[in-house]
Simulated scan of single mutants.
Amino acid sequence: MQNNNIVLPTQTLGIIGGGQLGRMMAIAAKYMGYHVHVLDPTPNCPTAQVADGQIIAAYDDLNAIQELSRVSDVITYEFENVDLEAASYIENLGKLPQGAYALEITQNREKEKQLMKELDLPVPDFAIVHNGKECEEVLKEVTFPVVIKTCRGGYDGKGQLKLESELDIQEAIQFVEKNKHCIIESWLTFDKEISVLFTRTQTGDIEFFPVAENEHKDHILSRTTVPARVSLEVQEKAYKAARLLADKMNIVGTFAIEMFVTGEGIYINEMAPRPHNSGHYTIEACNISQFAQHIRAICGLPLIPVELLQPAAMINILGEDVTSTLQAMKQVNKGYVHLYGKDEVKTKRKMGHITFIGENLQEQIEKFEEAKQ
């Protein structure tokens, strides 16, 4: 059940999850005049620092979910591993425009890939396994390398293992015996990775952001550049695939789809039913950010047609880079720094990002990298 009523400014938005995505959602909502409450188990989490109130509890605490529902006129989430029982409860109250179905699909790589196959979208060959014996049988028939992933959980390279040859089969069997429900996929050699972000309303209107090109280091997004260096044909294929998935899943809000580009073809990789790291550039480079557009969609407001004002490059700031980045920014007078307010600096943890905009992006980035050294 979806609520198509307009949630007016001065009403309250509830957010499940208190990380950086929730923080940037909350900032956008506050600019628009909404009150914000967040549910997160960590006191003074990044979102709580800019919200009006926080419920400190586990995400699957139904008493806490009921309290968040009581104080909120509409509820959203900043990550896909939301408890489905909790999501269904809020949806039945008419306060979760995004619904529980998008969560159900994106929480499970098997359901995700099966849906893509049903829509005849290009995906790598895959097989589902539940135990070591099934894993061994599948690996007898594949062409190496392949990648094995848990069907639930995992991000930034966690919960997956690349298998280079038959010598890795025993390690794969142990991986499956530990994690049970897994997917084995063909390893794709691709030219680049792109992401398509869009926002869809409760009535089906949709606005696409420019196709973004992503670079990873150690499985973590390192840089996003916009516009992506791909042909119009690839862009059209990417938008068409995204539109098919958006309509099939009845998406509401901002949604991200990661794809691989091989020549003039695409393969769909994974989806995220909320704003995405690769869309952070929209804050400075577009006439409306992925976060503000998301708030408009879930609150029943019309979307703003998206314009890319200037080319952009977004670079993640990980824990090991915080000091050198801030030192470099004393010498570089271009670039917008966003820090997320996390209380503990950890290696490989996303602590913030920096966005460069303008026509001379490569020159700006080179100066920044030199200053970091």
Results as ranks from 00 to 15, higher is better:
209 F>Q: 02
14 G>K: 01
335 G>V: 03
43 P>Q: 00
39 L>Y: 03
165 S>H: 09
153 G>Q: 11
167 L>S: 13
71 V>L: 06
232 L>H: 11
361 L>D: 06
68 L>Y: 02
71 V>D: 13
347 T>A: 14
288 I>N: 09
246 A>H: 01
211 V>K: 00
325 T>K: 05
260 F>A: 12
334 K>P: 00
357 I>W: 05
135 C>V: 04
250 N>Y: 06
82 V>D: 01
69 S>E: 00
150 T>P: 03
235 Q>E: 15
330 K>H: 12
108 N>F: 08
366 E>V: 11
40 D>Y: 13
286 C>N: 14
57 A>T: 05
254 T>V: 10
61 D>N: 15
122 P>M: 12
356 F>G: 01
197 L>Y: 00
27 I>W: 03
164 E>V: 10
214 N>M: 07
249 M>L: 15
207 E>M: 03
329 M>G: 04
37 H>I: 14
178 K>A: 11
158 K>D: 13
145 P>M: 06
158 K>H: 10
278 S>L: 04
105 I>N: 02
261 V>W: 00
315 I>E: 03
246 A>C: 06
325 T>E: 04
121 L>R: 04
147 V>S: 07
367 K>C: 13
61 D>F: 00
345 V>P: 01
304 I>N: 04
257 I>Y: 00
338 H>E: 10
68 L>K: 05
102 A>Q: 05
370 E>Y: 09
99 G>P: 01
139 L>T: 06
14 G>M: 04
183 I>P: 02
155 Y>C: 10
2 Q>G: 09
174 Q>W: 03
169 I>E: 11
271 M>L: 14
233 E>D: 12
104 E>R: 12
182 C>A: 13
86 A>M: 03
162 K>N: 07
219 H>K: 09
281 Y>H: 15
19 G>V: 07
147 V>N: 10
62 L>A: 11
368 F>D: 05
270 E>T: 07
327 Q>S: 11
309 L>H: 12
78 E>H: 09
